[in-house]
């Protein structure tokens, strides 16, 4: 991996993904709030990092190792910390704010991640799996739930929304969100996935090592 990618590109992408994921426009308290990731999402983020390592999408030894210079190890540490922060922020972003949707997403997200972890997919399959998890989270929160929660423009719409809210005891509807929230979510998820694809995989075994392996066998 080139020093430019490790020292500049990856931290920039991951920190930007974290910042975009935590930006929430149109909250009840302020026009724009930056919500830091919850401790629960940090736990989920460690599962994502573990899955990246096990699948071979990330080789931590290529970021931090005793044989590397101090400056290179510092760059690697920044990449790992940024990766953890970005993963936590993105997972926090796709978790609905309240009610039953929050409960179910908080329940199934770790199950999905643990399932991915134990299935042991290769790098490409893991990245596809992460894209599906994040994409589904974005669609559920910013398309389906946002559509159910946005203020209706017509009288019929208002009646239907009120009936839906009453039928579900208010457990489904979320705070209405402006359209920009969805765009920010898509941008941060895409940035995180692109950064995950740029992480250093393990080095392929050299031909000498392969030959020695064959001789020993």
């Amino acid at each position: 991996m080139s020093p430019v990618r490790e020292a500049i590109v990856l931290p920039l992408m991951l920190l930007t993904a974290a910042l975009l994921a935590s930006a929430q426009p149109g909250t009840p308290l302020a026009p724009l709030a930056f919500i830091p990731p919850s401790p629960y999402s940090l736990v989920l983020a460690t599962l994502v990092v573990a899955a990246l390592v096990r699948s071979g999408a990330l080789d931590p030894a290529r970021l931090m190792h005793g044989s590397r210079p101090i400056l290179a190890n510092a760059n690697g540490a920044v990449v790992l910390a940024s990766l953890l922060a970005a993963a936590a922020a993105v997972l926090s972003m796709i978790t609905p704010e309240s009610g039953l949707p929050r409960f179910f997403v908080a329940l199934f997200l770790p199950v999905l991640l643990i399932n991915t972890l134990v299935a042991g997919p290769d790098r490409v399959r893991l990245l596809r799996s992460l894209a599906v998890i994040l994409g589904a989270g974005v669609v559920i929160k910013f398309v389906i739930l946002a559509g159910l929660s946005e203020p209706a423009t017509s009288a019929t719409g208002r009646v239907l929304v009120a009936l839906f809210d009453a039928a579900t005891f208010g457990a489904i509807a979320q705070h209405p969100q402006p359209g920009s929230a969805g765009y920010l979510a898509v941008a941060s998820a895409a940035l995180f996935l692109a950064a995950a694809a740029l992480l250093p995989p393990p080095r392929p075994p050299s031909t000498t090592a392969l030959a020695m392996h064959r001789v020993e066998a």
């Binding site: 020292a7 500049i8 930056f34």
Partner: peptide, 26 residues
Amino acid sequence: IVRGSGLVASLAYGALVLWIYTNQPQ
């Protein structure tokens, strides 16, 4: 030079993100 400047820039950017979380500028 690339690694050093990248480290400084990343730490500054990280500090900015933390500052934004703390101060919530509008």
